[in-house]
Write a protein that binds this DNA or RNA. Structure first.
Lengths: 252, 252
DNA sequence: GAGTGGTCTAGACCACGTT
DNA sequence: ACGTGGTCTAGACCACTCA
């Protein structure tokens, strides 16, 4: 049961512009619920108010409330459990569509690890500044890692994060959990969605040595932009072994 | 207006198993509508019966009908126009998510062409048979093409199709339109969805010469499986220039 | 003005999980 | 027994398109 209902900072309803509103009611409710989630006011896996409670809050019927919730479930922001309640989804991002693994030598349990090569604060280069929308001289964290699955190196990646987003990042233990999980827990930063750009390239000396493959092997070059509540929070550039991974894409 | 309503071969309702049915009504209606579309009984861009008509046919309320239709719209099988009606969607597949083009020299209108290298009937190799689920000795069409955009070669691909699906394919004009459009029009074959597997590889002599790139350049190797009404209808293997295309993938 | 889809309501019964 | 989400109904009013 969601018990702490009163003191919502953003909870104002009916919305001020209601009179002249042309957007459908369920649409505005959807936006309002979405705001609670994306802003982090409702945390992942937290239960949200039940349908009857939301009906009362928004002063609308159950059908309208359900319509709003169904859209958010569709978007992946919420999930429901019959007989239990409705909950905030924890975004996957990490490895979701990323790579359907081709073949593991052992089909036993996979252990994922990462080795940190570098974690430092520095002035953002121009292209990174442009992506984040930062001014000249702004600081970012640069984090370079090699990811391992079952002791096999599978990708080499550099992440950039605005320094203001996660002060003191270099003191954290970055190899114990995913970066996203750490940012969520320690800084309250939740990533909502991400966008990847993928192209094929040839492994140079540096990449080849870290991935333990021959120079000249084909690899994926992946640039990922991860977004928090309507703002880019991370830019990641990674090389991923082409002999171990491939993308699977559904077309409709 | 959809006028020819009576003589639907598959139109039987209520469904025979209705008594013991445990699946929701809107779900069964959805399946039934979906069948009309995927079987080709309702053709792309054809108007389907209006909501009141469907209410009467299925003997259910408008809310239930709408729920079924909304799901199919979501799936991309239908589209709606306010004040006009509901229509069967024509599947995209061709080039949809395929490649977000990086940069064209001229940003003028793109003209797409393809040069047919080979179109012949032959015995299917074992891996092709396995994908289609065909017996030994079964025949397939093999179609090799180079695709051009603005006179620039962008991909080299080989398509395989079961010979029974499109008899006489080699006599058709294959360079005038997309393969999917031709199959739809001439053979009534509609592709519903497709699945792509993408990996990075190095261009060999053959690929490089057709794509007019240096040997050893990084390219995408793409295997696509296209599905008709619950059956694989095409297997396509293509090499796409990595210097001109990249994939864009949304993660949520 | 008649027909279409888009929104919204108020109520009902059900299946499920918890207590 | 109670609260949750899942399904379904019957009716209402609206915005849009077309004749």
């Amino acid at each position: 049961m969601a018990t702490k209902e009163q003191f919502d900072p953003m909870m104002e309803w009916p919305s001020p512009l209601q009179g002249a509103a042309v957007t459908p009611l369920y649409h505005r409710i959807k936006e309002h619920l979405s705001l609670q989630i994306r802003s982090g006011h409702w945390q992942p896996n937290q239960e949200i108010p039940s349908e009857p409670q939301l009906c009362q809050r928004y002063g609308s019927s159950r059908g309208t409330i359900r319509r709003a919730i169904e859209d958010l479930v569709q978007q992946g922001l919420l999930y429901r459990k019959r007989g239990k309640g409705t909950f905030v989804a924890s975004p996957k991002l990490e490895g979701s569509i990323l790579g359907s693994y081709r073949q593991y030598m052992t089909s036993g349990p996979l252990d994922a690890q990462s080795r940190i090569l570098r974690c430092q604060q520095l002035e953002a280069s121009e292209d990174i500044r442009r992506l984040f929308g930062l001014d000249a001289g702004a600081m970012v964290y640069e984090l370079e890692r090699v990811r391992f699955v079952n002791q096999t190196p599978v990708s080499l990646q550099i992440s950039y994060l605005p320094a203001t987003l996660c002060p003191g990042l270099q003191e954290r233990n970055l190899s114990a959990e995913t970066l996203y999980a750490l940012l969520q827990r320690e800084y309250g930063v939740t990533f909502i969605r991400a966008e990847e750009f993928v192209e094929p390239v040839i492994a140079d000396d540096y990449v080849a040595s870290h991935l333990q493959i021959p120079v000249g092997s084909p690899v994926f070059l992946i640039e990922r932009h991860s977004y928090t509540f309507e703002r880019i929070g991370e830019v990641r550039r990674g090389h991923m072994r082409g002999d171990l991974y491939r993308y699977r894409i559904e077309l409709r």
